[in-house]
């Protein structure tokens, strides 16, 4: 009796682990989530993000200048060059090393025109955005307008490419159908 209880538990645990692994692989893409996108871009993730429709999420991404790195799906990544192009500044060299509040402050200052266009950020610039603000604002604004005018329409990719986990599922289902057919024929 104990043996079978243990077996049941083992089956449940193994099944749950497999399922979680499948979802983990499928959901996390290359390991970066939507939270990571917002963190990397220096934006707050909306509190009710989880209940938004996909179109709503994509529209919000685009409103921030976040476009997919390839294809029409984000897959946990965005086009970083395009994002900074939209912001009208070069990506700071030390961007990866900045903390989330520092990135958010940088983006806030850029949106206020407080960061010089095409200037690489230094830690000090994040906190003290002093300087010729009007000039920066004009420069940043012009560049931003240029980008918006030349903005490519929302990315569309008609070709369907399934991720590996989904391909496995599809092939698994076909395999199950073949095995099912074989067992039903043999039973006859």
């Amino acid at each position: 009796m104990k043996h079978y209880s243990f077996l049941t538990l083992a089956v449940i645990i193994v099944s749950a682990s497999l399922c979680i692994s499948v979802f983990e692989v499928g959901a996390k893409g290359n390991g970066r989530s939507s939270q990571a996108i917002f963190d990397y871009a220096g934006h707050e993730k909306p509190a009710d993000w989880g209940v938004w429709e996909q179109e709503q999420k994509h529209a919000y991404y685009r409103s921030l200048g976040l476009y997919p790195a390839s294809g029409n799906k984000y897959q946990g990544e965005f086009d970083v060059d395009r994002y900074f192009g939209m912001l009208g500044v070069n990506q700071p060299d030390n961007w990866d090393a900045l903390s989330l509040p520092e990135r958010q402050e940088f983006v806030r200052q850029v949106s206020l025109g407080e960061v010089e266009n095409d200037r690489q950020i230094a830690e000090d610039n994040i906190v003290d955005g002093e300087g010729d603000r009007n000039e920066n604002r004009e420069g940043g604004g012009e560049r931003e307008n240029d980008v918006i005018e030349n903005e490519v329409q929302p990315l569309q990719d008609d070709s369907v490419s399934f991720p590996l986990w989904l391909q496995l599922l599809l092939f698994g289902a076909v395999g199950a159908a073949i095995i099912g057919a074989k067992s039903l024929i043999v039973r006859k």
Partner: peptide
């Protein structure tokens, strides 16, 4: 599975 793929859902979502 297909909705996770089609909606590009992440585990955190």
């Amino acid at each position: 599975a297909m909705l996770i793929y089609e909606r590009n859902l992440l585990w955190s979502d």
